[in-house]
């Protein structure tokens, strides 16, 4: 499997009480288990089945992904700015690993 690369985009500063957009994009094959490789064998399912965003220890957004999510899953969602802190992203892989990344957000 290729390297798991994460791209994320959040505003540098937000005002308190403001709703801001968070965008993430990761590299992942998201093999849906229906495709056949060049050897004629079925490629087993290998997807990220859950995504979570945790803002200052509190889960603000969660998503269950099924096989119909595209390769290199991109997601854009929103959060309400309450206080400065970290937003942690968690991608739960089918192979058991949890890819974790976080970003600092400053609330003014």
């Amino acid at each position: 499997m290729a390297e798991f690369r994460i791209r994320k985009s959040v505003p540098e500063t937000v005002r308190k009480g403001e709703v801001f957009e968070i965008k993430t994009l990761v590299t992942h094959p998201m093999d849906n288990g229906f495709m056949f490789g060049r050897d004629g064998k079925r490629i087993p399912r290998h997807i990220i089945h859950r995504f979570e965003a945790i803002y200052n220890g509190k889960t603000v957004f969660g998503a269950d992904w099924h096989v119909a999510v595209s390769t290199n899953p991109y997601i854009s969602f929103h959060a309400l700015a309450e206080e400065s802190g970290t937003i942690e992203f968690r991608w739960h892989d089918d192979n058991g690993t949890v890819h974790v990344d976080s970003v600092y957000i400053q609330v003014i």
């Binding site: 849906n32 509190k58 603000v60 099924h66 096989v67 119909a68 999510v69 595209s70 997601i75 969602f77």
Partner: peptide, 24 residues
């Protein structure tokens, strides 16, 4: 072949119930 696509879960801290993604 598999009808389910995604399930999104929100909280009041989400601020806005709006999600973008790309699907097959």
């Amino acid at each position: 072949p598999q009808p389910l696509v995604t399930d999104y879960y929100f909280t009041p801290a989400s601020g806005l119930a709006r999600v973008s993604q790309r699907i097959r």
